[in-house]
C-alpha cells in the first residue's frame, strides 16, 4: 500500500522549474532518505509532499519554523494544536496545563532539553533549536514524517540519537540528509536527486558509501 504518491509532477520553486517530471511512491512503513547537492530540489520535493498530504504528515523544515519568542514548551505543544478547542489552547497559552507538560517533558528529556522547557527558543543555540523542532514533530505523532536536514546542526552522537528517535516514533518517513553514511544507516530506501531528476531509487542495503558519493 502506498502512503504518499506523486505521479509525473513538475515541481517549481518560485518561477523556476526545479524537478520533474517526478514519479514517486512512498510506501507505508518505510524510511526514505533523500540525497543530493544543496539546491538540487530536496526541499522542494519535501514541500510538495507536505502540501499534498498535510493531513498525515509532521514537518521539520530546514528553517525549523519555530516561534522564537515563545517557550520551548509552547513550540512543542503546537504539534497538537488541532486536537484541542481554541479555548483550551488559549488557556494553555497563558497557563500551561499540567497534563500537557507531563506529556512534553519526557520528549524533551530524550532530546536533552528538559531543563529548557520554559526558556524562550530565541535564547537557545542552533542545535538546541533544531531539537525543539524535532520535539514538536515527535509530539505531533503524525503517521508520516517529512524532515528536511533535521540533524544538520547537531554533532555526531547527538545526530544519531535524534535519527534513532525519529525512526522509532515514525513508521513512515521521508528525510533529506547530506551525510551519506548516516543515510545508509537509517534509511531503508535511498533516493538521489541530480539535475532535476530522481537519478537513483534503491534499497539501502544494496548501496555503499562510495557508490553514493558521486551525488555530492
Amino acid at each position: 500500500m502506498s502512503s504518499l504518491a506523486i505521479q509525473d509532477a513538475y515541481l517549481t520553486y518560485g518561477n523556476h522549474r526545479v524537478l520533474g517530471p517526478v514519479t514517486l511512491d512512498v510506501r507505508a512503513g518505510e524510511h526514505l532518505i533523500l540525497l543530493g547537492k544543496s539546491g538540487c530540489g530536496k526541499s522542494t520535493l519535501l514541500n510538495h509532499l507536505y502540501t499534498e498530504n498535510r493531513q498525515d504528515c509532521a514537518l521539520i523544515p530546514q528553517d525549523l519554523g519555530l516561534v522564537e519568542n515563545l517557550s520551548v514548551y509552547h513550540n512543542v505543544y503546537m504539534g497538537r494544536l488541532q486536537r484541542y478547542s481554541a479555548l483550551r489552547n488559549c488557556l494553555n497559552f497563558i497557563y500551561p496545563a499540567v497534563a500537557r507538560i507531563a506529556e512534553v517533558t519526557p520528549l524533551l528529556e530524550q532530546l536533552g532539553l528538559d531543563e529548557k522547557c520554559f526558556s524562550a527558543v530565541a535564547e537557545l543555540s542552533g542545535g538546541q533549536q533544531q531539537r525543539v523542532a524535532v520535539a514538536r514533530a515527535l509530539y505531533q505523532a503524525a503517521p508520516v514524517l517529512l524532515a528536511d536536514e533535521p540533524v544538520s546542526a547537531l554533532d555526531g552522537p547527538e545526530a544519531d540519537r535524534v535519527m534513532a528517535l525519529l525512526g522509532q516514533y515514525f513508521a513512515t518517513a521521508v528525510i533529506s540528509l547530506h551525510d551519506v553514511d548516516r543515510a545508509l544507516r537509517y534509511g531503508q530506501r535511498i533516493i538521489a536527486i541530480q539535475n532535476g531528476e530522481l537519478v537513483l531509487d534503491e534499497s539501502a542495503h544494496r548501496l555503499t558509501v562510495s557508490s553514493l558519493n558521486e551525488f555530492y
Partner: peptide
C-alpha cells in the same frame, strides 16, 4: 513557515 508546520486542522 511556523504556521505551515502546524498540524492540519489547527
Amino acid at each position: 513557515l511556523p504556521a505551515r508546520t502546524l498540524p492540519s486542522g489547527t
